[in-house]
Design a protein around this nucleic acid. Sequence first.
DNA 1: TTAAAAACAGGTACTTCTATCCGTTTTTAT
DNA 2: ATAAAAACGGATAGAAGTACCTGTTTTTAA
Lengths: 226, 226
Amino acid sequence: MKNPIYVGIVEDQVLFREGLKAILGTWPEVEVVFESPDGYSVVDKLSNCTTRPHVLLVDLSLPPLGQTEFSGIQVTQAVIQAYPDIRILILSVHDDENFIAQLIENGAHGYLVKDCDPGEVHEAILAVCDKGSYINQRTLKALQNNLGRGTKTKSLAFSPIQLTRREEEILGLICRQLTTDEIAEKLFISSKTVNGHRINLLQKTGSRNTAGLVVYAIKNKIVHVF
Amino acid sequence: MKNPIYVGIVEDQVLFREGLKAILGTWPEVEVVFESPDGYSVVDKLSNCTTRPHVLLVDLSLPPLGQTEFSGIQVTQAVIQAYPDIRILILSVHDDENFIAQLIENGAHGYLVKDCDPGEVHEAILAVCDKGSYINQRTLKALQNNLGRGTKTKSLAFSPIQLTRREEEILGLICRQLTTDEIAEKLFISSKTVNGHRINLLQKTGSRNTAGLVVYAIKNKIVHVF
DNA sequence: TTAAAAACAGGTACTTCTATCCGTTTTTAT
DNA sequence: ATAAAAACGGATAGAAGTACCTGTTTTTAA
């Protein structure tokens, strides 16, 4: 087996990491030469690594609190800047189109959801080495649906989000554990309206659900915990 | 109209406060002699108040972040300790039995949900003056269902809650915006189990929903925002 | 004063969460 | 070794949240 593909694994969970290694180990043309439990030390570790990987398999299952995408993007950007030759394959539980599109736009060469079968991982590794990238149906769809929103996505990631007064008010009430109906009752408006503000809040803050909204609110001092 | 009933209103929302005053004003035997936008300054304000109210109508729609019941309890206790003669009628959007029971146990003389009709407010005001308390069907049910859990309720309110390792882990993942199914997948357990832990977390932290869980987690440094 | 933004409201479909049952297995502490 | 606590899992039901669509009215700013 000449010209093996050197693969690096970035995954915080030991069990899953070892499982991945075991699976990759069954493929003769693949060799795991690097692993890291987190994304932040990856660049450092790569610098004094005996055999530099061709492909980096990066698990993004646990982004830091309050930001669904930023850390993944940061790691991707950092690695690509330092080692432009390394191909980056993202492995994530998140199936959000925005998320996927943002990662690809920021330099990742492929995106796999975590419950894909080993065959797809194999295929993806070969593809990023051979063709430079691996775009499956899911990723393609995400990119298409986010094509027009290039600027929107960017401004969302880097500029401080501006919430309206009403949105902040409702966000505060959400943090105080009021339901949509209760908020509507308290503000003398329809619950449909509250629902609308809720959706806008999720969109503006880039949250997936209520938990994300609360973290955002606290982080940005829209509500005060202490 | 001799022997009017002097009533005080504690309500942060101007519109609702004025509306209440207007409604109470139509009852000849009732006179509003005191109002306050928040519960914390109530005791102070009562001390230099020309006509001391017989009944205090306290709105608890907006408890401080992360605690559904404590502030209401604190205000109730403070007023009762300083002015044992004053009858306290709680007015709240919360229909939780635990919440109601805790307030009554801590000295409130009556509990009304905010969407009750004016007639019930009238009835309640007369009742707390006449009989000393006003217990409606809802309140009675709440008290009965919480009768056996007296100690449980108390320990929940005053002792720091002890979460298990697994519970903290799952709480962390909730804060990171993972859904129950995603958490189950990540931890290699059934979503039913995650659901169980979720319910226990709500119960232990005294939260009403996910928002409460996140606030609790941040407040108690189970996750770190910054 | 005119256009844009914000707030409002209704409908519909689907997903996730909340709540109660019930039970088993594993871990921990006495 | 035994009991208690923790973790696990299944079924079911209903409440709340998420995500679209469609509009109108009010506010704000150019």
